[in-house]
Amino acid sequence: MAEATPTMVFVYGTLKRGFPNHPLIAASACPFAGAASTAAPASLVIGPYVVPFLLPAPSSSSGRLVSGELYAASRAALAQLDALESQLIAIRPQGTHIGLYERRRITVVVDGSGEAVEAEAYFANPSYAEALWRRCGGEAAEIGEYTIEHAAKYVPPGERSDATSGLLDAIHSFIDTAPDS
């Protein structure tokens, strides 16, 4: 039986080559398909623990083209990426399940060739995305690329002070805290 066509995945943060979580994508045997950027503006902000979050542009005047990398993921590799990005499922006290990220379709443009490619990317969950964008500073905080300088300050899950409560709780605490606190 023929293997299913791989799913193109656009990564914009810690999964890029040379970044802290790239060994996870490399272990998933996802072939690198090229550098790319979003075809339409999106909002990329940095939240707690210097974790990057991609958000749909909240308004027609906001957002930037976001740079990243494109990978071809098999069904099994996509499941592994979903598991990673899901430190994804968090169970709230009310018993509801809220994912940190939501995998969505996006059009990206491959650097060099200019080819438009349909891919999947991990976006911040809509339950907190707009509040996170505002708390980060809105349009003033949007960046076009998560850089190695950002990644140098990234705090891996095992080194976070709230390792038992999780990133979702850290996001909500961050959102609820005034910027100058």
Rank of each mutant, 00 (worst) to 15 (best):
Y128E: 05
H150D: 14
R104E: 14
S43P: 00
P156L: 07
T5D: 15
R105W: 13
A151F: 02
P93V: 04
A152D: 01
D82E: 13
R160V: 02
E139D: 15
R134T: 04
S113T: 15
L65K: 09
V9C: 11
F174L: 09
I25C: 08
S59Q: 06
R75E: 15
C30Y: 10
G144T: 00
A131K: 14
L88N: 09
P58G: 02
D176I: 00
S61M: 02
L15T: 02
L65F: 09
L84W: 13
A119R: 05
F32E: 14
R135S: 10
A129W: 07
P41F: 02
F174S: 07
V109M: 11
P48L: 13
A35N: 13
T147Y: 08
E102G: 01
S60Y: 03
A4L: 12
P48E: 14
S43Q: 02
E145G: 00
I148M: 12
A163Y: 15
I25G: 01
A163G: 10
A83N: 09
Q94W: 04
I46L: 05
G99Q: 10
D111G: 10
T107Q: 15
Y146G: 07
A2Q: 11
K153V: 00
P52G: 01
A36P: 00
L78Y: 10
P48H: 14
Y12C: 09
T38G: 01
A27K: 12
G166C: 10
V9E: 13
A152L: 04
C136T: 03
P20R: 05
Y154C: 09
G99T: 13
P52N: 00
F174E: 07
V11Y: 12
M1V: 12
G47H: 06
A73D: 14
S127G: 06
T164I: 11
V117G: 02
G63M: 00
A72Y: 04
I98F: 05
M8T: 01
L44P: 08
A42S: 02
E69G: 02
L70P: 04
S62M: 01
P156R: 05
G138A: 08
P31C: 07
